[in-house]
Design a protein around this nucleic acid. Structure first.
Lengths: 140, 140
DNA sequence: CTGTATCCGGTAAGATACTG
DNA sequence: CAGTATCTTACCGGATACAG
């Protein structure tokens, strides 16, 4: 497992961006942290799985999603879809047939997010073994 | 709020990567999903905050971290640090003085991850208002 | 100072049954 | 088919006390 080196330039750049992020934070009085609000979007396991699946299968119905996103319950899938729709990541289309048919697909915004998500999963997948290895050794 | 358009080329590229990711997955018998293992690394609120803070302040002691990472409890901070150390993101250095001093800093691997994390927070921050806006309208 | 140990409460999530 | 309603359980996280 190869860990790419982070160059000095990249670190300086990172520090600059972090400074921008942290700059406005007042630690003595913080009812609302922008970073946290922001990260809440992307830190949900089921939501990320839903987005990834809708990236791979362009259109999915409720029960199809339920099969693909293995282990998710009716309740959680329904909640997350409503939330993802509300935030603008997912489009929900109802066909009033009998029985009713409902299709889900990513919006343009959803696709924009999908790009970032794929980058992240790629990174994670590339370094998975490194982490697992560390973890094993650490136990000892 | 401007949503950058995802080009056709980017979508095709995303589909290719997703195919690679999803390719090996057997939906009928899946004790372990690689994508989930992978995403579990990045989906913890406190861990991401710790990493970001250690990116901004190169070295921090336990109680310093506790002050910066607002609202975290002893228990959770301790747990997360141990986990981050075990996975290789964070280095823990003990100075056996009296009273004892312990310092935390990112490893090279931690810096590598920090890069991805910053990209993500940047994206999220840029699109925060768009999401919040959608959310408001959706309620109605 | 740097944690660990313990307890406790809230919340998220799974299972199931049921409805439009 | 596409969810909702209800219940129960399990886990996470917060507070506090204390130990090395």
């Amino acid at each position: 497992m190869q860990i790419e080196t982070v160059t000095e330039k990249q670190r300086v750049n990172a520090a600059r961006k972090l400074k921008k992020m942290f700059g406005g934070i007042d630690y003595t009085n913080m009812p609302h942290c922008p970073i946290r609000d922001v990260m809440a979007f992307v830190s949900d396991k089921w939501s990320t799985l839903i987005i990834l699946h809708l990236g791979y299968f362009p259109v999915l119905r409720f029960n199809e999603l339920k099969k693909k996103v293995f282990g998710v319950s009716n309740k959680v899938l329904s909640e997350r879809l409503k939330q993802l729709e509300g935030d603008g990541y997912v489009q929900r289309t109802v066909y009033p047939e009998v029985p009713i048919r409902v299709e889900y697909n990513l919006t343009d915004f959803g696709h924009s997010y999908l790009q970032k998500l794929i980058e992240l999963t790629e990174w994670a997948e590339n370094h998975k073994n490194y982490v697992i290895n560390n973890r094993e050794n650490f136990k000892k």
